[in-house]
Design a binder for these strands. Structure first.
Lengths: 396, 396
DNA sequence: ACGACTTTTTCCACTCAGAGGACAAAGGGA
DNA sequence: TCCCTTTGTCCTCTGAGTGGAAAAAGTCGT
């Protein structure tokens, strides 16, 4: 089938497309309740959208007691591709135009193999999803990469953990390979957009989304829009000093948050604890698998292992201390914690909360929920789909 | 004379008023170059503005080689009142519609005397300015207070250093007393707006403005707009922990930045150093005046006093450390340092720069100027005038 | 001084988005 | 069945805004 080529012709049409994306099928009358346009104008714009094929009629709407009305919905054949490239794995998912995930694949991978190898893998994963009948093609794709991005051009800039990616024209290249429009952003920003669209951050205008994975980053949402900073590196909180004269960090400084707590740091600490015999539980796991990760620490903690719990609490304290500073500065309406270590769950959350509520002023923390993300690994890919759909559903 | 009652009737008129405010007198043709409206439409809107009296004709424009054209300017009788309430003093200024300061008074004062006493003083200062012939009345007033403000209502909320102000309807009350529209904001935000309008931050979209006075605060500008946070306490960085287990702070925690460096902390440290005989220079000043302030430390430092220099450097290091974290997080395009301690000058600035450039990542600091504010005490009052003019020069 | 060329302003006819009312179509409830 | 409500369609009217023509008022070269 031919892919979506049309774009909304004006701001009204863009608005309607977004309403249909976020609210699902709607009758013309229901749309009219939301957009403050006259019925005639609305009818004209809907008619034009129907002509483009972006939306289609979809049976009868639930009756509200008058003349029966027909539903309108986004074309059911539209497909977005969401790609979330992490440090050690990739997530690829297909969504429909309402951003519902129809299929999702996760595979291990190492970003350091460089963009060419990684995108080869991504394309084969996308092909697999296509082959399973979920899509006949893609109308747009959103890509998340674990480092700063010059957003307008879709190019990674000086990414510390991704040597070989600096300046690689991700947007350009993937747009060619996939044959559809592509937008690229930092993975943390996409997670924030995902939680905003379908997770805990719905209806919150200003919030922070802290992602603790291999590294640590923070998505910043201001007035419903992701804030990316002057050079695209906003939210890069992994290298904020958490411990004066603390551990050496790969960035050359000492005491960076990331050096003391992150997926990588946690794995290292756990391995060390196991080798030094501080924890039977961890030692057993190390012996069984050969290496430890955050997942093992989570499991050990769940089994009641004191060392594992201490590691988590200590990390939570450090993280909480940094977040407390950010809360004072930014005064968000919500803080979301997500990423690979979310499995550490409430032990981690409790430690973070304790620090923040103790250190920040009551006016900032008074009504401040600090919660775990509710989408887990799908936050990134949903955010990616959201990114490209925001782009496509905006006036040309 | 009757005061301004008219307001722009639509977004175009508002746009034109702001252009005239920021660019001074302009011919219709020059305005046309900036607004992307047809000549005819522009002529209509200008005509309507002339009818309201908000703008007036103002002689001939500089010739560009064709038919002579007449300048348009904002009504020369328009007057805004800018009020900057600090912890220990008040600044009151009158500006014209182009936000040029026509008269400026500074008086010592103690906010803790409460809103009624303070506003009595402010009103008498405003009356003095009026009496000196600078204004026949005020068309609007902007007020800055040293604490968080619920912005839409113009009411201080839970201000730590201003007991008795919590919930006081500043906007309402002053609007009554002055008989003109009033807007209220945090003093730090106003300083940021001042530097943005007439100071170092012109043409920068995203920047931070750190004000070090009796306390420490930070104005946050995102995309040219001040960001105030969910409860109006954004930028409250004085209580970020700068020293683990450091000095006790009035807020109940330990190690807050404000407890280690601020006008108040500096005065205390200097007094202690003088009393313990560490510094002849400071001891002499203490003996002469009876108490020390940041100004004395600045003077001692200028005279080469080692103790004073150490105090400044130490404070700069602490401040720089906190700012380094904020820079990593926010990735601003500029950092402005201002407030009462600006007199400490380049010693302070150098210490801050050292910390930030060392601790933050190159991508964030690569092209990041860290500079002193260039407006000094007028930044606040200009920002206040800007605040109310933005309000008045927006579509009703 | 005069003509050629520019710039600025004014006037006017024309387009087009959008509002809003009238009316038709198609239900529900007493 | 009758009446009321909701929804969809049609049509007219308004007002914002565009763009061209022409007039007004300069500059500059010869």
């Amino acid at each position: 089938m031919r892919r979506m080529t049309a774009r909304p012709g004006n701001a009204h049409q863009a608005r309607l497309l977004r309403l249909l994306r976020d609210g699902g099928p709607n009758s013309r009358a229901q749309l009219g309740d939301q957009v403050d346009l006259s019925r005639s104008k609305l009818a004209v714009e809907v008619e034009r959208l129907l002509e483009t094929g972006l939306v289609v009629a979809d049976g009868l709407a639930a009756s509200r007691g008058g003349r029966r009305s027909h539903n309108i919905r986004l074309a059911p054949a539209l497909r977005f591709l969401g790609v979330d490239i992490g440090a050690t794995s990739v997530d690829v998912a297909v969504t429909n135009a309402e951003l519902e995930v129809l299929g999702h694949i996760n595979q291990p991978m190492d970003v350091r193999e460089g963009p060419v190898a990684v995108f080869e893998q991504v394309l084969s994963m996308a092909a697999k999803l296509k082959a399973s009948g979920l899509a006949e093609g893609f109308d747009g794709a959103g890509i998340g990469v674990p480092g700063p991005v010059r957003f307008p051009e879709g190019v990674p800039v000086a990414p510390p953990i991704m040597p070989g990616w600096d300046g690689f024209p991700v947007r350009e290249a993937l747009s060619q390979d996939l044959g559809c429009p592509v937008m690229v952003d930092n993975d943390v920003n996409l997670m924030a957009m995902g939680e905003q669209h379908a997770g805990v951050a719905r209806s919150v205008g200003d919030f922070l989304c802290v992602k603790i994975g291999t590294g640590i980053g923070c998505g910043i949402v201001v007035g419903g829009e992701v804030y990316r900073g002057t050079t695209g590196s906003a939210g890069d909180i992994g290298h904020i000093q958490a411990v004066p004269d603390g551990r050496p960090c790969a960035c050359g400084n000492r005491g960076c948050l990331e050096a003391h707590f992150s997926g990588a740091a946690l794995a290292r600490d756990a391995t060390e604890a196991a080798q030094q015999g501080h924890s039977q539980e961890l030692a057993a796991r190390l012996a069984a698998v050969g290496s430890l990760s955050a997942v093992d620490v989570a499991a050990a903690a769940a089994a009641g292992d004191a060392t594992a719990l201490d590691l988590i609490r200590e990390g939570g304290n450090r993280t909480g201390q940094v977040i407390a500073g950010l809360v004072s500065f930014f005064n968000p309406g919500l803080v979301v914690i997500g990423g690979g270590v979310t499995g550490l769950g409430h032990t981690l959350l409790a430690a973070i909360r304790t620090q923040v509520y103790r250190q920040s002023l009551p006016l900032a923390t008074g009504n401040l929920p600090i919660v775990l993300g509710e989408l887990g690994p799908t936050a990134g890919v949903i955010g990616a789909a959201r990114l490209i759909s925001d782009h496509l559903f905006s006036p040309a």
